[in-house]
Nucleic acid binder design. Structure first.
Lengths: 334, 334
DNA sequence: AACATATCATGAAAAGTTTTATGGACAAAG
DNA sequence: CTTTGTCCATAAAACTTTTCATGATATGTT
């Protein structure tokens, strides 16, 4: 069933059928009805390829994320997909891993696929070394690029993010106000977001004129889900003499490892050790005790991102950067 | 840059360029090299729409799942996407929710998008009432349909699943052999998989000639992540006089709720209460105590699914049903 | 050696379906 | 009778794959 068949059966030209399909006004009500009836009757839908050829668009947005099975990224992908669907867009998904070369390859694949726009989910797409971000600039020449949870100043690149700097600073200050003297910042990536959190942590330390001698930063090189690895790292660290009475984590799963560590080291939470996670994921309520965590309003961020995305595709103006603020959700580890 | 430009610059016809691009053998080595050089030089990639029009395929597989933010489904989607990518296919993602109408709509959207094949992830796509599965039969006429974790006998429908019946039966028998007398089966959906597990549970009970008087089945109507809801349901159930010394769960997050319940009811795990989860997800190691769970080899299943999918698309033969067996991973709740 | 046949390499053209630009037909208004 | 505006048809353009046809070369036969 093609547009020719429809036009023939309705006794009009294919152009008229096209106009009806695309809501063009230059069609009389009578003709429109006649055409719609035939379309309905034969359950006709335009061929996507021919349509794409004509419009050079396939009504589809590319979603890139490092790992859609990561609890946090999975949520983000889900919210974005739902949002796009609501606006009538399809989602092409590509999980690129954390490797730069793979990211580049996936992105250029997306460009070739003629998606209308690409969304890079998660701060891992932005590297500290700015020369490694050239691939984003290049992509932005061909189509709009949206970043979730990263901040990048470039024409045709739009960012929606949480103020990780301030959230982490506030969380750290909060611990200080609650009599914590030796605070550890634990992170497992050198992505944009983790580094911003690190800066927030440092600022809090400086604000209270505590030196970094008594406060620490610890990098965990393992994978996100390696909770036992975090436990072991902390046990080892402690054996080396490093002491701490609170941990600010860049991620809930790290915090989950800290709780394991406390159990192994026979420390009581929150009496001997306070723990604050980040992302307010489901892990916060499956832990024992339940984990305090920074909620970065992921759903709101994603909905805003999609809204901006649609505005851009419609040729409307939208801000290049939108920042949400985080919020500490207090549970039983503080 | 089109195929015309390339053909002109290489001094050959567009047919020859097309042959080179598609690996057709009828091209002399000299010509092939000449064409490849030009393609390389101008970084040419065929227009996907025109290509799609010619081949009626866009080298893309549709992945449907109810909720890609669900821990279990997210893993499955991830493994499938990675597998498809490795074989050169793109993935169009659609999260349909659990509602039948929405599923139908999403599926017919996928068909119109001319994906090469659709993969329905999760047993929620198969309903007990077989008349509600007609939409799958209809889709299978137009393209291959693959089901993960559901069993459906129909031409052009291919299934990869875990033997949930046997796994649950084995888990239940295992509990009986370890002196559990009053076992509860807890489930939160009436999907194909949960019902198969229920049958497995019942069979185990019958095999040991225990009547169902002392063993129970309990349905939790809440959402998957509502862990506190599970706790409250069990507390209430207990108040009504129902007793149990072991719980077999259809899902790890339910098991997580059971652990919460045990804490609230001051029951010791595993002394007073054994708990077995299902899926062996990350929740098993963030729980305290760590959760015993049935591992259904999800990654293997997904890899097999993709392999079968690719075979079908290449026109090769592949079995219509492949069954994996589950395996009880013992941790600290049994 | 001459001719017929098979094989290989290549080109020309059709097929696939839509959108958009252009212009024609017709009715109403001036 | 001319102008204006509405509605619609025609034709061109978007780009690739594939089929058919043709020319060239190699192989086999007499």
């Amino acid at each position: 069933m093609t547009i020719y068949d429809i036009s023939q059966k309705a006794g009009v030209s294919i152009a008229t059928v096209s106009r009806v399909l695309n809501g063009n006004t230059n069609v009389s009500e009578k003709t429109r009805k006649k055409v719609l009836d035939v379309i309905e009757k034969y359950d006709y839908a335009p061929n996507v390829f021919a349509r794409g050829l004509g419009l050079d668009s396939m009504n589809c947005v590319g979603i890139l994320c490092a790992d859609s099975s990561d609890i946090y990224l999975a949520k983000a992908v889900y919210y974005i997909e739902q949002g796009l669907r609501a606006y009538g867009y399809n989602s092409l998904l590509s999980c690129t891993g954390y490797d730069l070369e793979n990211r580049k390859k996936s992105l250029s694949m997306m460009l070739n696929q003629r998606v209308d726009c690409v969304i890079l989910v998660g701060s891992s797409y932005l590297e500290q070394d700015d020369s490694n971000n050239a691939y984003i600039r290049e992509a932005s020449v061909k189509m709009p690029v949206m970043l979730l949870n990263a901040d990048f100043d470039c024409e045709n690149v739009y960012c929606v993010l949480c103020d990780d700097f301030k959230s982490t600073m506030d969380a750290t200050l909060w611990l200080m106000e609650h009599k914590r003297k030796k605070i550890l910042y634990l992170y497992n990536s050198t992505s944009y977001s983790a580094i911003r959190k690190l800066s927030g942590f440092r600022s809090a330390i400086l604000m209270k004129e505590q030196t970094l001698d008594k406060n620490y930063e610890l990098y965990f090189p393992g994978s996100r889900d390696d909770i036992d690895g975090v436990r072991d790292l902390l046990l080892e660290t402690r054996k080396k003499g490093l002491e701490f009475d609170a941990v600010v984590c860049a991620d809930d799963s790290l915090a989950s490892g800290v709780i394991k560590y406390a159990k192994a080291a026979k420390l009581s939470i929150p009496k001997d050790l306070s723990v604050i996670g980040y992302n307010n994921s489901i892990l916060t309520i499956t832990c024992e005790p339940e984990l305090s965590s920074v909620d970065n309003h992921l759903q709101d961020q994603c909905e805003q991102l999609v809204k901006s995305c649609v505005q851009i595709l419609r040729g409307e103006e939208t801000p290049r950067k939108i920042i949400f603020s985080g919020e500490l959700i207090e549970r039983s580890t503080t």
